[in-house]
Design a protein around this nucleic acid. Sequence first.
DNA 1: CGTGTTTGACCAGCGC
DNA 2: GCGCTGGTCAAACACG
Length: 296
Amino acid sequence: MSEDYREFYYHQLFHDDQPRSDDLSVHPHLQLFDPNPYLSFTEILHGPTTDHDKYSPPEIVKEEENPVVVVVEAGEGGETPATPNSSTTTSSMEAAAAAGEEYSNKGKKEESQDDPSKKEAKVKKKAEKEKQPRFAFMTKSEVDHLEDGYRWRKYGQKAVKNSPYPRSYYRCTTQKCGVKKRVERSYEDPSTVITTYEGQHNHHVPANHRGQVAGMFGSPMFNPLLMPFEAGGPNFPQQLLAQMPHLYGYDGAVSNNLYHQRTLTQPHHQHSQQLPPDYGLLQDIIPKQESGFFYV
DNA sequence: CGTGTTTGACCAGCGC
DNA sequence: GCGCTGGTCAAACACG
């Protein structure tokens, strides 16, 4: 991990003077995890450097209140620039706050005194919405819309309050797949893209024209790692997470970016925490310790 | 022609 | 009630 990345990480973690990151209390729905925030994706992939081997994290990780920060360097796949360091992914409290703000605000005034049918519809709508799993993560990237293997159709763009950068709205183009994602650039760090996924893919990652799985991490070195996941089924990432609900407080969907993030994360040290019953061969590929994300 | 983007309009929720 | 904001729609447009 370069110093840059570490700086970036700490920036995300400890900027408690930011208005959007100080209100976890208002985001009870947020579930933050901290498997191992001290590793960059590079380290995860290639093993730690000697320096980092000696590195001891300060006493700042407590229970589940700190955000997961996993830095992932994007390969040269998709639209991601070819420079190895041009794109890094992390998840953070800031992203959680950014992505979750809406959740915390909406539904507060649900006690409508309107007619029962309207109220019922509202409740139903709310329940439906809350059923949609969400999580957000941050990607250090020069491009806004990172290739992640799925096909997305942009259906809207809005100016973001307090930010010079617009927010883009995407929907998965696959029929009957209602997964959406929002992409916006952090106003605090313009080099950072905040991506929020909502919903669950119910289909395979579509192959691109060359019959390969596209993706922001789709460089050749990554593809072999993708294979087992492809073989795993249409909802592989979902299945993956579904196997670790006790770890992630979640029982269903996951973004494909997370999918890649997790897929590409190579174990270099396995902790001896209990594994899910069906962790199976995934344990060879997925180091549950070094990946992370949060739901919003 | 199929697919995806752009962009202004519209709607609903929320705070004041 | 009103204004602000976020999210979505859909027509027009661009592109391969």
